[in-house]
Design a protein around this nucleic acid. Sequence first.
DNA 1: TCTATCAATATTTTT
DNA 2: TATTGATAGA
Length: 725
Amino acid sequence: MTTENDTAMDAAKPISLTDQQAKIANHKDGPLIVLAGAGSGKTATLVARTGRLLEQGVPPRTILITTFSRKAATEIKNRLVAQYGWEGEDVRVDTFHGMGFRFMQEYKEHFGLTPDRQWAILNENDQRRTLNEIAKELAEDADLELKDLRKPLKEGLSLWSLMKQDCKCPANMSDAIIELDKKRAMQKGVSPNAEAVTVQDRIVAQTLVKYEEQKRKEGYLDFDDLLLQPTRCLVKYPNIAVGMSMQHEYIMVDESQDTNLVQYLMMQQIGQHHKNVVMVGDDDQSIYRWRGAKVANLRRFIKDFDAPIARLEENFRSHANIVNSASSLIQHNQKRLPKKPFSATQSGEAPELTISDTDRAMALNMVDQVVEMQAKGIPLNDIAILYRTNRMTTVLEPAFKQAGIPYTVVGGMSFYERQEIQAVQACARIAYKHDDWNALKFLQPYIDGVGKKGMADTIERLKKDNLNLLQFMLHEAPQQYGKAGIRLREMVEGIYTNAYAKHDPTPEGAYNMAKHLIQWMKDGPMKMLDREKDDVMRVRRSQNLDQLIHEIGQARPNDFFQYMLEAPLSDYMASKENVEHVTLSTVHRSKGLEWPHVMIAGFSDGLMPLEPGRLQGRTPQKQQVESDDDDDGGRPEEERCLAYVAATRAMETLSLHHADMYHFPGSEPVCLDVSPYADEMNIVFAPEVAHNVGKPGSTTLEPEPPSPQTHQDLEDEEIARLIMG
DNA sequence: TCTATCAATATTTTT
DNA sequence: TATTGATAGA
């Protein structure tokens, strides 16, 4: 949303390209890797190349652009449509996950599913619940409690996910134990030691193996399945891969530094026949290694495809001072592909560092700075505040709220993760996939008199006796379960009459169904809104539901069920589009976006980088341990990439904010030093500090505590500076 | 025995 | 801000 201004502008008229860009845009057949620095206009170049292909008569449907997020996909799609009309509309722009899902639906029979059996995607809630249930049972056998397994299970799941992204998914417990141990060792930089496996580890491994089995049996997919299963299928059935490659004659992979191994292999399987693949990426901006992304994919592509290298090094986005600071920072990373970013634009203001006593004071200073900018006539939409971790919002939000400055928090929870939206999803899922027990569990809190236990027992019966949901709920449940049974029937009946029976696979049908279904959920026996005690929340939930209806009206999907089914893959955020607002976002979420004025909150050693004092290159003990992960410089380098990404979002001004002390809810107060990146960026101190309120938990002996100044002082100083020029 | 309700608690980054 | 855990109530 934040870049809508420039998107609209860029989209309106095809941009004139530089020679470098034009060369890439004119590349037609064969592989190519594009190392595109921050702000180098890579999206514009990709769009232009698509245009050239269309001009040369390449059918739009055979052009595929994969992006990192739905949001990025939508943005590219919008530009294509704006510039090339219906042809642009027909170009495929999608995430790997989205592609995978559609692929699996098309080739259902290759995944051991009968055509009448439906898939559903497990969202994070479903996943956690499923794992807990399996683990609980196993834990009881071993005389353990679920809570003893919480942490190991969480860790195990993330390792499991990483393994699946590396195309490994052990099918039995002993393999699982070994592989999990290996992966854990690799993460921690120690040697694997299968001897030291604890009871908890065994149960976790067993849980995960069972989880996989259960998913397959019941027709569920998690995020990793959407990549792993199609890729395996493509490898196993080369004729399908050939078919796919004929469907996708030209492939462009955006943000390819953040693709993982499965994604790479998926691309390779499809692309290897014609080799018309363009990978675009920037190893300096690889910030997702922690979840399996492999920068080595860039090098691997060069080797596998024998791809020539093209570079986009000129930064059109940022003033020279920002570019210089940022590149001086990133040069401290050892492992990077050679490149020399530069900016030909005016030098602009140098990045500034402001130091406050406490997090609260920092927030107030940032608010002040925003107010100043506002006074200069800068629109709020031009300002973004970036931070490393979401909990920074607990400090920032109150400050902005109090000052009455409109803001939007990006991240945290996405629209589709909200309870009320997930409830709608659950109804859609049940209507679409009658045996979606997970969805049924999700609706349990909305059924009076039916608790967790009651629902679990009912589902157990349905599963065991292989009963039809509708049949059972409509006829047997009311007789067998009394009042609760009647409630169950009401719910299923409602879903049946409002969704299933009204199914009409057209955009209008989808819209109407959403309207009816949601109306019923609000007013019917589920009484979704009545249940909410908090007035503010009730209004918000109601608005969210209305927003969903509106969204479906806009998106015009051909099928309501399909749309809701893919909701977990969507990163749509409901935001106040029409109100001018400051954007608050994590650095991760800011990838690919830009703002004239960027402020970084929490520029401290321990927040950015997150682990303090660990800057000396690679983590110490990392060696000998199996080197299929040769690529990166480990965590410290990734942290620097993050700071680099944050800094390069700025077009005109960049200001960094550090506080000596942070006190986040739920954890002890901490005193932190200024981020070591300040030096690496050659930052000048801006010693004026307006707010030094609050009480430092312990005194810090930082570069002489700046004398507290009042709000007024700051303004005077600012005015003086402006007058002086 | 199961459900509903209230207080406590925890937060790296997310397709 | 959810989810989880303890407790009272049906």
